[in-house]
Protein backbone atom coordinates (compact mmCIF):
# COMPACT_ATOMS: atom_id res chain seq x y z
CA UNK A 1 0.00 0.00 0.00
CA UNK A 2 1.20 3.48 -0.82
CA UNK A 3 1.56 5.49 2.35
CA UNK A 4 2.92 8.61 0.75
CA UNK A 5 2.73 9.72 -2.84
CA UNK A 6 4.16 12.91 -4.28
CA UNK A 7 3.00 13.55 -7.81
CA UNK A 8 5.00 16.00 -9.94
CA UNK A 9 5.49 18.47 -7.14
CA UNK A 10 6.94 21.85 -7.88
CA UNK A 11 7.70 24.59 -5.42
CA UNK A 12 9.24 27.96 -5.87
CA UNK A 13 9.65 30.84 -3.46
CA UNK A 14 9.26 33.86 -5.71
CA UNK A 15 11.73 33.33 -8.50
CA UNK A 16 13.77 30.78 -6.62
CA UNK A 17 12.76 27.30 -7.66
CA UNK A 18 13.34 24.88 -4.80
CA UNK A 19 11.61 21.73 -5.98
CA UNK A 20 11.33 20.85 -9.63
CA UNK A 21 9.05 18.03 -10.58
CA UNK A 22 9.45 15.73 -7.60
CA UNK A 23 7.58 12.44 -7.71
CA UNK A 24 8.07 9.70 -5.20
CA UNK A 25 6.18 6.97 -3.46
CA UNK A 26 6.77 5.44 -0.08
CA UNK A 27 5.13 2.12 0.64
CA UNK A 28 4.29 0.41 3.89
CA UNK A 29 7.22 -0.90 5.92
CA UNK A 30 9.79 1.11 4.09
CA UNK A 31 12.46 3.06 5.84
CA UNK A 32 13.04 5.70 3.24
CA UNK A 33 16.18 7.81 3.38
CA UNK A 34 15.87 11.12 1.58
CA UNK A 35 19.40 12.22 0.89
CA UNK A 36 20.51 15.60 -0.31
CA UNK A 37 22.97 18.37 0.27
CA UNK A 38 21.96 21.32 2.42
CA UNK A 39 19.49 23.34 0.41
CA UNK A 40 18.51 20.49 -1.87
CA UNK A 41 14.86 20.91 -0.91
CA UNK A 42 14.44 18.16 1.71
CA UNK A 43 12.81 20.30 4.39
CA UNK A 44 10.62 22.07 1.84
CA UNK A 45 9.38 18.72 0.54
CA UNK A 46 8.57 17.53 4.05
CA UNK A 47 6.77 20.72 5.01
CA UNK A 48 4.59 20.37 1.95
CA UNK A 49 3.64 16.85 2.98
CA UNK A 50 2.54 18.25 6.34
CA UNK A 51 0.55 21.04 4.73
CA UNK A 52 2.81 23.75 6.17
CA UNK A 53 3.72 24.95 2.70
CA UNK A 54 1.74 25.06 -0.49
CA UNK A 55 3.16 23.29 -3.55
CA UNK A 56 3.26 25.54 -6.61
CA UNK A 57 2.11 22.59 -8.68
CA UNK A 58 1.36 18.92 -8.17
CA UNK A 59 -0.46 16.79 -5.68
CA UNK A 60 0.48 15.04 -2.44
CA UNK A 61 -1.45 12.12 -1.02
CA UNK A 62 -1.04 10.59 2.42
CA UNK A 63 -2.69 7.16 2.72
CA UNK A 64 -4.69 8.04 -0.36
CA UNK A 65 -5.99 11.29 1.11
CA UNK A 66 -5.08 14.56 -0.55
CA UNK A 67 -3.03 17.05 1.47
CA UNK A 68 -4.49 20.57 1.52
CA UNK A 69 -2.41 23.54 2.53
CA UNK A 70 -3.52 25.06 5.83
CA UNK A 71 -5.70 22.05 6.70
CA UNK A 72 -4.59 19.38 9.07
CA UNK A 73 -6.72 16.24 8.61
CA UNK A 74 -4.05 14.23 6.80
CA UNK A 75 -1.63 14.95 9.61
CA UNK A 76 -3.49 12.46 11.77
CA UNK A 77 -1.79 9.61 9.93
CA UNK A 78 1.59 11.30 10.18
CA UNK A 79 4.08 11.58 12.98
CA UNK A 80 6.47 14.46 12.44
CA UNK A 81 9.86 15.09 13.95
CA UNK A 82 11.41 18.43 12.91
CA UNK A 83 15.17 18.88 12.91
CA UNK A 84 15.01 20.98 16.07
CA UNK A 85 11.69 20.19 17.79
CA UNK A 86 10.39 22.98 20.02
CA UNK A 87 8.34 22.08 23.08
CA UNK A 88 6.57 23.98 25.82
CA UNK A 89 9.38 24.26 28.33
CA UNK A 90 7.09 24.54 31.32
CA UNK A 91 5.71 21.04 30.82
CA UNK A 92 7.13 17.68 31.78
CA UNK A 93 7.49 15.03 29.04
CA UNK A 94 4.39 13.26 30.31
CA UNK A 95 2.31 16.42 30.26
CA UNK A 96 3.50 17.20 26.76
CA UNK A 97 2.62 13.75 25.45
CA UNK A 98 -0.77 14.04 27.12
CA UNK A 99 -1.39 17.30 25.29
CA UNK A 100 -0.35 15.69 21.99
CA UNK A 101 -2.55 12.66 22.59
CA UNK A 102 -5.57 14.78 23.45
CA UNK A 103 -5.05 16.88 20.33
CA UNK A 104 -4.89 13.74 18.21
CA UNK A 105 -8.12 12.59 19.81
CA UNK A 106 -6.79 9.58 21.69
CA UNK A 107 -8.49 8.15 24.75
CA UNK A 108 -6.96 8.91 28.17
CA UNK A 109 -6.04 5.34 29.03
CA UNK A 110 -4.60 4.80 25.57
CA UNK A 111 -2.48 7.93 26.00
CA UNK A 112 -1.26 6.76 29.39
CA UNK A 113 -0.29 3.36 28.03
CA UNK A 114 1.45 4.72 24.93
CA UNK A 115 3.21 7.41 26.96
CA UNK A 116 4.71 4.82 29.23
CA UNK A 117 5.77 2.56 26.37
CA UNK A 118 7.28 5.37 24.36
CA UNK A 119 9.08 7.11 27.19
CA UNK A 120 10.66 3.77 28.01
CA UNK A 121 11.57 3.27 24.35
CA UNK A 122 13.31 6.64 24.14
CA UNK A 123 14.84 6.39 27.59
CA UNK A 124 12.96 9.20 29.31
CA UNK A 125 10.77 7.02 31.51
CA UNK A 126 12.02 8.40 34.80
CA UNK A 127 12.50 11.98 33.79
CA UNK A 128 9.94 14.13 35.55
CA UNK A 129 11.72 17.42 35.12
CA UNK A 130 10.37 20.28 33.04
CA UNK A 131 11.45 20.24 29.41
CA UNK A 132 13.25 23.60 29.48
CA UNK A 133 16.37 22.04 30.96
CA UNK A 134 16.61 19.26 28.36
CA UNK A 135 19.63 18.71 26.15
CA UNK A 136 19.35 18.57 22.37
CA UNK A 137 19.48 14.80 22.40
CA UNK A 138 16.77 14.52 25.04
CA UNK A 139 14.53 16.87 23.07
CA UNK A 140 15.12 14.80 19.96
CA UNK A 141 14.17 11.62 21.81
CA UNK A 142 11.05 13.25 23.21
CA UNK A 143 10.38 14.37 19.65
CA UNK A 144 10.36 10.76 18.49
CA UNK A 145 8.06 9.75 21.35
CA UNK A 146 5.68 12.56 20.42
CA UNK A 147 5.77 11.58 16.75
CA UNK A 148 4.98 7.94 17.46
CA UNK A 149 2.30 8.63 20.04
CA UNK A 150 -0.75 8.14 17.88
CA UNK A 151 0.73 5.10 16.11
CA UNK A 152 1.06 6.92 12.80
CA UNK A 153 1.28 5.10 9.48
CA UNK A 154 4.01 7.46 8.39
CA UNK A 155 6.83 8.97 10.41
CA UNK A 156 8.57 11.96 8.90
CA UNK A 157 11.92 12.91 10.37
CA UNK A 158 13.71 16.00 9.17
CA UNK A 159 17.43 15.57 9.75
CA UNK A 160 16.90 13.97 13.14
CA UNK A 161 20.57 13.35 13.75
CA UNK A 162 22.37 16.34 12.31
CA UNK A 163 22.37 18.39 15.50
CA UNK A 164 23.57 15.56 17.74
CA UNK A 165 26.83 14.15 18.99
CA UNK A 166 27.85 10.60 17.96
CA UNK A 167 26.23 8.94 20.98
CA UNK A 168 23.02 10.87 20.57
CA UNK A 169 23.00 9.95 16.90
CA UNK A 170 23.40 6.28 17.57
CA UNK A 171 20.57 6.38 20.10
CA UNK A 172 18.22 8.10 17.69
CA UNK A 173 19.08 5.71 14.86
CA UNK A 174 18.49 2.69 17.07
CA UNK A 175 15.12 4.05 18.15
CA UNK A 176 14.17 4.81 14.56
CA UNK A 177 15.04 1.37 13.28
CA UNK A 178 12.97 -0.11 16.10
CA UNK A 179 10.09 2.17 15.20
CA UNK A 180 10.49 1.22 11.56
CA UNK A 181 9.18 -2.24 12.34
CA UNK A 182 5.74 -0.75 12.85
CA UNK A 183 5.50 2.25 10.61
CA UNK A 184 6.83 3.65 7.37
CA UNK A 185 9.56 6.21 7.91
CA UNK A 186 10.78 8.99 5.70
CA UNK A 187 14.02 10.28 7.00
CA UNK A 188 15.96 13.16 5.49
CA UNK A 189 19.63 13.62 6.08
CA UNK A 190 22.93 14.56 4.60
CA UNK A 191 24.78 12.04 6.75
CA UNK A 192 25.13 9.04 4.47
CA UNK A 193 26.32 6.59 7.07
CA UNK A 194 23.07 7.10 8.99
CA UNK A 195 21.11 6.11 5.91
CA UNK A 196 23.26 3.07 5.27
CA UNK A 197 22.74 2.01 8.83
CA UNK A 198 18.96 1.93 8.96
CA UNK A 199 17.26 2.63 5.64
CA UNK A 200 16.12 0.04 3.13
CA UNK A 201 15.12 2.53 0.45
CA UNK A 202 16.70 5.76 -0.63
CA UNK A 203 15.98 8.73 -2.78
CA UNK A 204 18.65 11.22 -3.70
CA UNK A 205 17.49 14.79 -4.06
CA UNK A 206 19.64 17.21 -5.97
CA UNK A 207 18.70 20.76 -6.93
CA UNK A 208 15.05 20.03 -6.42
CA UNK A 209 15.01 16.86 -8.48
CA UNK A 210 14.94 13.27 -7.39
CA UNK A 211 17.94 11.94 -9.25
CA UNK A 212 17.77 8.42 -7.91
CA UNK A 213 15.24 6.31 -6.08
CA UNK A 214 15.10 2.65 -5.14
CA UNK A 215 16.15 -0.17 -2.93
CA UNK A 216 19.43 0.56 -1.23
CA UNK A 217 21.02 -2.81 -2.04
CA UNK A 218 19.91 -2.64 -5.70
CA UNK A 219 21.34 0.81 -6.04
CA UNK A 220 24.61 -0.11 -4.48
CA UNK A 221 25.07 -3.10 -6.75
CA UNK A 222 24.13 -1.22 -9.94
CA UNK A 223 26.40 1.66 -9.12
CA UNK A 224 29.19 -0.50 -7.91
CA UNK A 225 32.43 0.57 -9.57
CA UNK A 226 34.40 -2.63 -9.13
CA UNK A 227 37.61 -1.85 -7.40
CA UNK A 228 40.43 -4.08 -6.27
CA UNK A 229 43.15 -2.83 -3.99
CA UNK A 230 46.43 -4.69 -3.86
CA UNK A 231 48.95 -3.87 -1.19
CA UNK A 232 52.55 -5.03 -1.54
CA UNK A 233 55.25 -5.38 1.08
CA UNK A 234 57.29 -2.52 -0.30
CA UNK A 235 57.06 0.30 -2.82
CA UNK A 236 59.41 -1.38 -5.30
CA UNK A 237 57.67 -3.17 -8.13
CA UNK A 238 54.38 -1.42 -7.54
CA UNK A 239 54.52 0.68 -10.68
CA UNK A 240 55.69 -2.29 -12.76
CA UNK A 241 52.74 -4.28 -11.49
CA UNK A 242 50.41 -1.41 -12.28
CA UNK A 243 51.66 -1.28 -15.86
CA UNK A 244 51.14 -4.98 -16.31
CA UNK A 245 47.65 -4.75 -14.87
CA UNK A 246 46.91 -1.92 -17.26
CA UNK A 247 47.56 -4.31 -20.15
CA UNK A 248 44.48 -6.38 -19.31
CA UNK A 249 41.60 -5.36 -21.57
CA UNK A 250 39.09 -5.37 -18.70
CA UNK A 251 41.06 -2.95 -16.51
CA UNK A 252 39.94 0.62 -16.99
CA UNK A 253 42.32 2.44 -14.67
CA UNK A 254 45.05 1.89 -12.12
CA UNK A 255 46.27 4.16 -9.42
CA UNK A 256 49.54 3.82 -7.53
CA UNK A 257 49.90 5.12 -4.03
CA UNK A 258 52.99 4.26 -1.99
CA UNK A 259 53.07 0.47 -1.81
CA UNK A 260 49.54 -0.12 -3.03
CA UNK A 261 47.81 -0.16 -6.37
CA UNK A 262 44.09 0.39 -6.88
CA UNK A 263 42.58 -1.20 -9.94
CA UNK A 264 39.24 -0.28 -11.47
CA UNK A 265 37.81 -2.97 -13.65
CA UNK A 266 34.64 -4.29 -15.18
CA UNK A 267 33.36 -7.54 -13.71
CA UNK A 268 35.47 -8.51 -10.75
CA UNK A 269 33.73 -11.88 -10.45
CA UNK A 270 34.60 -12.81 -14.03
CA UNK A 271 38.12 -11.47 -14.36
CA UNK A 272 39.37 -11.41 -10.80
CA UNK A 273 41.26 -14.71 -11.11
CA UNK A 274 43.40 -13.27 -13.93
CA UNK A 275 44.74 -10.63 -11.55
CA UNK A 276 45.49 -13.30 -8.97
CA UNK A 277 47.28 -15.39 -11.62
CA UNK A 278 49.41 -12.39 -12.55
CA UNK A 279 50.33 -11.83 -8.91
CA UNK A 280 51.41 -15.46 -8.56
CA UNK A 281 53.34 -15.39 -11.84
CA UNK A 282 55.19 -12.24 -10.86
CA UNK A 283 55.76 -13.59 -7.36
CA UNK A 284 54.70 -10.22 -6.00
CA UNK A 285 54.97 -9.90 -2.21
CA UNK A 286 51.24 -9.39 -1.61
CA UNK A 287 50.23 -8.18 1.83
CA UNK A 288 46.60 -7.56 1.08
CA UNK A 289 44.17 -8.26 -1.73
CA UNK A 290 40.86 -6.58 -1.30
CA UNK A 291 37.71 -6.24 -3.39
CA UNK A 292 36.23 -2.94 -2.25
CA UNK A 293 32.56 -2.55 -1.76
CA UNK A 294 31.04 0.61 -3.09
CA UNK A 295 29.72 2.89 -0.43
CA UNK A 296 26.66 5.04 -0.63
CA UNK A 297 29.01 7.96 -0.69
CA UNK A 298 30.36 6.83 -4.07
CA UNK A 299 26.85 6.51 -5.41
CA UNK A 300 25.87 9.88 -4.02
CA UNK A 301 28.90 11.66 -5.42
CA UNK A 302 28.36 10.02 -8.77
CA UNK A 303 24.71 10.96 -9.18
CA UNK A 304 24.96 14.42 -7.67
CA UNK A 305 28.22 15.56 -9.30
Amino acid sequence: MEILKLDHIQKSFGKLSVIQDLSLTVSEHSLFGLIGKNGAGKTTAMKMVLGFLQPSRGEIRVCGEKVTYGKTQTNRSIGYLPDVPEFYGYMTPKEYLKLCGRIAGQKPEQIRKRTEELLTLVGLANVNRKIHGFSRGMKQRLGIAQALLSEPKLLICDEPTSALDPIGRKEILDILSLAGQQTAIVFSTHILSDVERICNQIGILDQGRLVLQGDISDIKSTYRPDTVRIELAGPSGVSVLAEKLQDFPFVSATEVKENAVTVRLAGVEKHGHKILELLVREQSPVLKYEVQESSLEDVFLEVVK
Binding site: L50, F52, T72, Q73, N75, R76, I78, G79, Y80, P82, P85, E86, F87, L99, C100, I103, A104, G105, G143, Q146, L149, S150
Partner: peptide
Protein backbone atom coordinates in the same frame (compact mmCIF):
# COMPACT_ATOMS: atom_id res chain seq x y z
CA UNK B 1 4.62 23.10 14.63
CA UNK B 2 4.23 19.88 16.60
CA UNK B 3 0.64 20.39 17.82
CA UNK B 4 -0.44 21.35 14.30
CA UNK B 5 1.42 18.39 12.83
CA UNK B 6 -0.72 16.32 15.21
CA UNK B 7 -3.87 17.57 13.57
CA UNK B 8 -4.69 20.56 15.80
Amino acid sequence: VLPISKGL
